[in-house]
Design a protein around this nucleic acid. Structure first.
Lengths: 206, 206
DNA sequence: CACTATTATGAGCAAAGGTTCAGTTCTTGC
DNA sequence: GCAAGAACTGAACCTTTGCTCATAATAGTG
């Protein structure tokens, strides 16, 4: 068990190409091992083994086990943040349904891209790693603000309590997509998109 | 770490009153400790200490750590299952909006009753305890069937893809309520109920 | 009170697994 | 080709923690 007191930064900056490769192999192995075994049962020795690297090498680049998960989560979040930034400045004059569809589709695609099992593990552990929690919360806040602004300004929107509505919309999309894509018997992505868009559009514009 | 091979049943049936009290004190302590520290960091020694009982006593009633969480989850699920059974036979002639409101309200109340942090921990660990997973899945299936039947039969319902719709509705309510009630800055319960009902009603009946 | 069954105790065992570090091998620049 | 630094190795250490068991205390019974 770790104590979460140490920095999550790598202890050493790679200076040779092989080092960068090793680092990458370790991270990929970590993703696989966490996905297959979960976080607790995904031991660092197993990760090193899977990466074809000694346990010592692992600890040359990652100061502890948490740091591995942290880097995986940060990479995932950075992609999501970039996508949000795009949405923020997108054309707001198109009909609400199209904007909603864009948001839903982006979320679905992001969940088809990464393994949802890993995603779940990362989000489960995030609350235990304060530095990451901060990052997740920030992402959440930005998304919420963007959405509320949109609801307040777009002419198609008829809902009145935009404060609650934005929280409802953002969380519904995120949680439902995550759940229904990750299930053992996943919902068809197109159907999910259509139904979700229908639900949100009627809610916001009727 | 446990191996999950042993039965989750208590190893001894209490025959005296004090034993039953001890058992109860241990379970309550477990709930508190898991809530405060999470499952991994909620050690059995800490639970025994909090219960004011020796570690040996704990293991007289619960064969391993998992069994503690299992009993907590089973108690929670049994309440939820009972509530679902009621809904199943309820009057289906009232307007859809009222039925939806009943479902949403029940869910919200159940989440105000139990600590959502504990709930989250239980649902996170359930996949790792096969016996419990089965119980959770069964609950889920019943809820889903009940909902789909309702959507297929109720005259107010206009949605066509009732298969996807029922999954969407059930999961939306469960996940969103859980999240928005558990957050550090929780949504007002009445507002949440209203917006959620509005969203689902318009989706299903427009 | 005596005798048995039940319940409670807690020091310590054993396994797991995160992490270290002294030593070895490889790369690079001259 | 040869330092010198960078990268890599893996056996072993050490903490954590679930759990046992020999012993002690308490309750029930006649």
């Amino acid at each position: 068990m770790t104590h979460g007191k140490q920095p999550l930064q790598p202890r050493k900056q790679p200076r040779q190409v092989r080092a960068e490769l090793t680092r990458q192999r370790i991270l990929t192995a970590a993703a696989h091992v966490f996905t297959e075994h979960g976080y607790a049962a995904g031991t660092t020795n197993r990760i090193a083994e899977r990466a074809g690297v000694s346990i010592g090498s692992l600890y040359q680049y990652y100061p502890n086990k948490d740091a591995l998960l942290a880097e995986l989560l940060v990479r995932h979040l950075d992609i999501g943040i970039a996508a949000t930034e795009e949405h923020r400045w997108k054309d707001r004059s198109e009909p609400a349904e199209e904007l909603i569809r864009g948001f839903v589709r982006t979320t679905i695609e992001s969940h088809l891209h990464d393994d949802p099992r890993l995603l779940r593990i990362m989000l489960e552990q995030a609350p235990l790693l304060p530095e990451l929690l901060e990052k997740v919360n920030h992402h959440e806040r930005v998304l919420l603000e963007t959405t509320k602004d949109l609801l307040d300004q777009h002419p198609d929107i008829r809902v009145t309590d935009t404060d609650t509505a934005s929280r409802l919309v953002v969380n519904t999309v995120e949680l439902v997509v995550h759940r229904l894509i990750a299930e053992p018997d996943p919902v068809d992505a197109t159907r999910l998109e259509n139904e979700l868009v229908a639900m949100l559009t009627r809610y916001l514009t009727c």
